[in-house]
């Protein structure tokens, strides 16, 4: 594995399988009375969040703490975009504090890449979501969740031949980018569904199929992932009204009825109930949305553990 996790494109199939297999071991920990391992004792993980994100930050914090790392939460309100302290100065501060890993969420695409490659810090950098670029740990937890439900009985985590449909604002979605790349690496067949205005230019070169017609593709899907649609996209003229969007691209009870029995429904959160997903779908038996959150902690534990040089088995070496 590379030193940093900036994009799921950086992960080979072996890397991805290792992370998912490690996460599976660590996932068992959640069911134990004592949920803590000493693996990263004495190491410092900094959560550097330039954008509000409650769930991702808490997930990383829980992951680091369960591995006994020291955690510093750094909510940097106002990046250099808003004339606050610059990314560089913040990075130098963290470096001076002796951070071993920096988990960074930033509104600018490529900010974690800059952090990792500009020589400002020596720490391992984990991208926790950058602009409209990528969100690799979200894709890993999505893949992990899919493997648990759809992965078959093979020894290795695999999604070979599984059909995943990702629906919504692909253009602005870092989750969609990371998932498209990772799921392809793991052998899944990915179809992106969106109105043409919300598919990026050049999507035809991505390792995915695309469709404008949700009803045509979901009956064959093994997993359907709904993406959040921000209401401000409406003022950008990407679609006429929220109602029309819901009608054409929302997942409601009628559409859910066309799914195969085993098909799962996913959402990276936060959901806009009534917009891209109706409440009855979100709360249905098919929905694994809450489980995604649980799995997120295990996946992030695996990432931190593997990046920070865990060569010993993560589980089993309790002192």
């Amino acid at each position: 594995m590379k030193r940093h996790l900036l994009s799921t494109a950086d992960l080979s199939r072996d890397d991805a399988e290792l992370i998912l297999a490690t996460a599976a071991e660590l996932r068992e920990l959640a069911d134990r009375p004592i949920k803590k391992l000493p693996a990263l004792r004495g190491r410092t993980v900094v959560n550097l969040f330039f954008e509000d994100s409650t769930r991702t930050r808490i997930s990383f914090e829980a992951a680091a703490k369960r591995l006994s790392a020291d955690v510093i939460n750094f909510a940097a309100k106002g990046s250099s975009l808003s004339k606050g302290e610059s990314l560089k100065d913040t990075a130098l501060t963290l470096e001076a504090m002796g951070a071993d890993a920096v988990v960074v969420r930033h509104g600018a695409s490529g900010a974690p890449h800059r952090l990792a490659h500009s020589g400002w810090v020596r720490s391992n950098v984990v991208n926790a979501g950058d602009g409209t670029h990528e969100h690799p740990t979200q894709a890993l937890l999505d893949a992990f969740t899919m493997v648990r439900h759809l992965g078959g009985s093979g020894a290795k985590p695999s999604l070979d031949g599984r059909r995943v449909v990702i629906v919504g604002d692909v253009l602005h979605s870092r989750v969609a980018r990371s998932n498209a790349l990772l799921l392809n690496t793991l052998g899944a067949e990915v179809t992106l569904v969106a109105p043409p205005t919300l598919l990026p230019v050049g999507v035809e070169s991505w390792p995915v199929e695309t469709s404008y017609d949700l009803d045509a593709v979901i009956p064959k899907a093994d997993a359907v992932m709904m993406l959040r649609v921000q209401r401000e996209r409406m003022s950008g003229g990407f679609f006429p009204t929220a109602r029309e969007y819901s009608r054409r691209y929302g997942l409601d009870g009628r559409r859910m009825a066309t799914l195969q029995d085993h098909t799962i429904v996913m959402h990276p959160g936060p959901m806009v109930r009534g917009m891209e997903i109706t409440a009855d779908v979100a709360d249905s038996d098919r929905s694994v949305i809450v489980e995604q959150v649980t799995n997120g902690v295990a996946v992030r534990m695996a990432v931190l553990y593997l990046l920070l040089g865990g060569s010993e088995p993560a589980v089993g070496g309790e002192e």
Partner: peptide, 18 residues
């Protein structure tokens, strides 16, 4: 807009300048 709009801008998540 941040960079030339094309396959790469879509991949990098940088707003395209068509």
């Amino acid at each position: 807009a941040q960079m030339n709009e094309g396959e790469l801008s879509g991949r990098l998540g940088l707003a395209g300048w068509p």
